[in-house]
Design a protein around this nucleic acid. Structure first.
Lengths: 144, 144
DNA sequence: GGCTTGATGTTATACAGTAACATGCGTTCC
DNA sequence: GGAACGCATGTTACTGTATAACATCAAGCC
């Protein structure tokens, strides 16, 4: 799926969910797409300023929050960053693997394996939300 | 284990690992212990200032980083906070459950359940580090 | 004593995120 | 058409989180 296809699909996805991927939101999504892996809010802000002049933090944060809500982006807490989710259509639970060395990020599906964790949480009287796990380790390239 | 016992055990733990739980570090650890659940760095800083006058952010962050490295504290990325780990002695992999509603945090052991995730990561050519999972959901009290 | 090493102090600043209010703009309802 | 509403965006100012860089201090070693 190329960038344009993605944006089109994203637009449809939003419509189906009863909200609008406005020009600004689309532009922010596009800026995130342009980077590989994790992007920081202030990076997006800088990019946005290059493209449309003045822009303040709230502009970017609002768009990013929206995109996360729609499932188009994931927030990576450990890095204060955001990554594109490229399978927002399907119900999924994914695990986000963050390489300690190079910082690269990949997302893998993990529906089945999560059940074990869900059981443990349940035993502790805790109900897991639908969510994305974030785990750290070493990616193939950084493993010696 | 009460607070004093904990601090003593922590001191020993550090010595065994070839480093020192200095007076400052001990004081910071104590301040974290005093709170239930997650504490913020700047909260600790404020507490520290009350006890010893002037103190700047790096003082606290350095101590907190040290304590995390030694396994005495866990960082809770999603909340920009820290919690005490009360079983730093044993090799463990734990899952930290953060309630979306009340923000309370609990830590449960999850050695076994993690293996499923490890397998999935391995299949994606990714080696998980020894780590603590952080998951969100609803605790018993907040579930209606 | 003089040197090294690691911990702490200090100053300044970078980076992350939000509150609060103003403005614009399309829809609906009359 | 135009009033009223709701939502997106713009703007200002601020709060909160974290670190770089350099200065100082204290303990151990030769």
């Amino acid at each position: 799926m190329n960038s344009n296809q993605y944006l089109q699909a994203a637009e449809l996805h939003c419509e189906r969910r009863g909200c609008k991927l406005t020009a600004l939101r689309k532009q922010v999504l596009e800026l995130v797409l342009r980077h590989e892996g994790v992007v920081k809010a202030y990076q997006v802000l800088a990019d946005l300023q290059k493209e449309r002049g003045a822009a303040a933090p709230p502009t970017v944060y609002r768009a990013l929050d929206f995109l996360v809500e729609q499932g188009l982006l994931h927030r990576v807490d450990a890095l204060n960053g955001f990554i594109v989710c490229d399978h927002f259509e399907c119900q999924h639970e994914s695990m986000i693997l963050v390489c300690e060395t190079c910082g690269k990020v990949q997302e893998v599906d993990v529906m089945a394996a999560l059940n074990g964790l869900r059981d443990v949480a349940q035993a502790a009287d805790f109900t897991l939300s639908h969510q994305n796990l974030m785990l750290t380790g070493l990616c193939k390239a950084c493993r010696v």
